[in-house]
Simulated scan of single mutants.
Amino acid sequence: MTPEQTSTPDLTPGRAHAHPSDAHPTDPQTDAPTDDPGPDRRFVIDFAAYDDVADGQRWSTWLQVEPLCRGPEPRPSWVVTSQGAIDTDLGVLKTGKEADVHLLERADPHDPEQSVVMAAKRYRSAEHRTFHRAAAYTEGRSTRRSRDERALNRKSTFGRQVAAGEWAVAEWNALVRCWELGVPVPYPVQIDGTEILQEWIHVEEAGERHTAPRLAQTRPDPELLGSYYEQTRQALHTLVGAGLVHGDLSPYNVLAAGDRLVVIDLPQVLDLVGNAAGFDFLHRDCSNMCAWFRRRGLDVDPEELFAELMASAF
């Protein structure tokens, strides 16, 4: 039997596949059933598909994206890699200036241990964003293709798609690099176009899980407040040591997951030296964070923190 005479199985995830031994030989000219076992026979294979997924669901996209679009190894044990998993949109978690964040469950219906809830950040096209100061952050960046570079400077549909994709890729790269550096950020699971799947930072209360509050919403006791500041300071040191600046760090871009802080919203991460305003952004990050800690009663000096970071950078 030659390859041309054999029907190709459908390997779409979630479909049941017939085995060649269950097929019926047919006449190659008429497709009529035949008992001839000769070399020219071919198979007609019927495939029984599972029910289609419901509205708000899709098959897992884990294996559809390129390996470099998946999170760094070693991966946390909770990452679901099953080909038979289904993604279910659980609704909007929050809206932002350039993207919306949804909660998304990825679960294999045949393996209860393969189930996790993640945050899905989906970037909007340029005309639907309310963030208009992108140029200050993107100075020093370049796209990989000259066509994309030209498109960014035009008000075309393709240009708007490129712009949305560039911000998603910028945040993905920042998340991966920060995770590998040890900066407390959500684990980046995967990127697919303008959608980033990442760890859902949550807390448990009365047996239920809730999204961790922003630092700005918390009222920590003096001991925890001091711990939060030290974590902030260490995160800034790690970033600056790698030549990076968050660029928009504030109590609204930091989550308080119990006694630990997690930095979020990193699409504007920039090069401390490559961006002409890098030092200004770093100074602003220090001022924003120290102002909140001072309002909570901790005696910290933004100028002292900035000088300390500058000294460690060179």
Rank of each mutant, 00 (worst) to 15 (best):
M1R: 05
M1I: 12
P3K: 12
Q5V: 01
T6L: 13
S7V: 15
T8N: 11
L11W: 10
R15E: 13
R15F: 09
R15S: 14
T26D: 05
P28R: 03
A32S: 13
T34I: 11
D36E: 11
P37H: 13
P37T: 11
P39H: 02
D40I: 00
D40T: 03
R41C: 00
V44I: 15
A49K: 13
D51C: 09
D52G: 06
D52V: 09
S60G: 10
T61S: 12
W62A: 03
E66N: 02
R70K: 06
P72L: 05
P74H: 03
P76F: 04
T81I: 00
A85D: 04
T88I: 06
G91K: 02
V92Q: 15
V92H: 07
K94E: 11
K94A: 15
K94F: 07
E98Y: 02
H102T: 03
P109V: 07
E113W: 03
S115D: 10
A126R: 14
H132I: 04
R133P: 00
E139F: 11
E139L: 12
G140H: 12
S142N: 12
S146L: 15
R150S: 13
N153M: 10
T157C: 03
R160C: 04
E166Q: 13
A168E: 05
V169P: 00
A174P: 02
V176E: 04
P184H: 10
P184M: 06
V189H: 03
T194M: 12
E195S: 08
Q198N: 02
I201Y: 04
H202L: 01
A206S: 15
A212R: 05
A212M: 01
L215Y: 05
A216H: 09
Q217K: 09
T218M: 14
E230N: 08
A235I: 00
T238Y: 05
G241M: 13
G243T: 10
H246T: 01
D248I: 01
S250T: 07
S250P: 02
V262E: 08
I264W: 02
D265F: 03
V269G: 02
V269R: 01
V269K: 03
D271W: 08
N275G: 05
A277W: 02
A277Y: 10
F281G: 04
R284N: 05
C290D: 06
R295D: 11
R296S: 07
R296C: 07
L298T: 00
E304D: 14
L305S: 01
L305H: 06
L305P: 08
F306K: 08
A307E: 12
A307P: 00
L309H: 06
M310W: 05
S312N: 06
